[in-house]
Amino acid sequence: MQRINVIGTSGSGKSTFSQKLADALGYPYIEMDALFWQPNWAESTDEAFFATLEQALASPQWVLDGNYHRTVPIKWRQVDTIIWVDYSLTRTLFQAVKRAITRCLSQQELWPGTGNRETFQKTFLSRDSIVWWTMKTYSKNRARYLAVMADPNFAHIRFVQLRTPAQANQLIQQLKEKKTLVTEPRSNA
């Protein structure tokens, strides 16, 4: 596992998992939302977004956090592993709402230098609502990712489907242990 894309519906926990995975492996963490969103919630053009993504993926090892289906030809060109955070709709929706409330209350800037913050209005009462987006895309994403896993064009990619947080934690623990075994010096005894 050298080049990993973590995918999943908004609110699934893919960013939290991706950061933990990158830390466990010692790989750079790349968040696609941070590459895409500009100040004042302006969207990058595809041309600019694709160029930024290409540059971010130039290193030999990385954990890429994000979907953006239109970027598949770029991000999966060299990917060797795709990890799908595929929790239940109930859990995903709960996590999306909890995260949205926390961000609204804390007013934390989502991506440094953008000034983008979640507001109650935008998060819960607009057509751009992340909660609505989660509900709207959950089933579509599941169907898409199940199809991708079965697609012979992607047979060279290792797919890992995580259905529970326990599975996610177990995978990270296994990778930490494996890395420890690889990096520990051998004794001369």
Rank of each mutant, 00 (worst) to 15 (best):
I30K: 03
I74G: 01
A166D: 07
Y29P: 03
M149H: 09
V97S: 11
A24P: 05
T119M: 12
K98T: 04
F124W: 02
Q78Y: 05
N141A: 15
H69S: 15
T92W: 12
Y138L: 07
T183Y: 05
T92A: 15
T45N: 07
T16W: 12
K176E: 10
L175M: 12
F49K: 03
T137C: 03
T119F: 11
L175E: 02
K14H: 10
T92C: 15
I157M: 09
K176W: 01
F36R: 00
G113D: 14
P39L: 12
Q55M: 06
A96D: 01
I101M: 12
A100F: 00
Q174T: 09
Y29F: 15
T71F: 02
T119C: 13
Y29G: 04
L53A: 13
A100G: 05
A34F: 11
Y29K: 07
R99M: 02
F17H: 05
K136A: 12
G113S: 11
A34K: 09
T119P: 06
F124R: 02
E118W: 07
L64Y: 12
A56Y: 11
F124K: 02
R142F: 06
M1R: 13
E54V: 05
G11Q: 03
W133L: 13
R103D: 01
S12L: 10
E47T: 09
T102W: 08
K75P: 00
K14F: 06
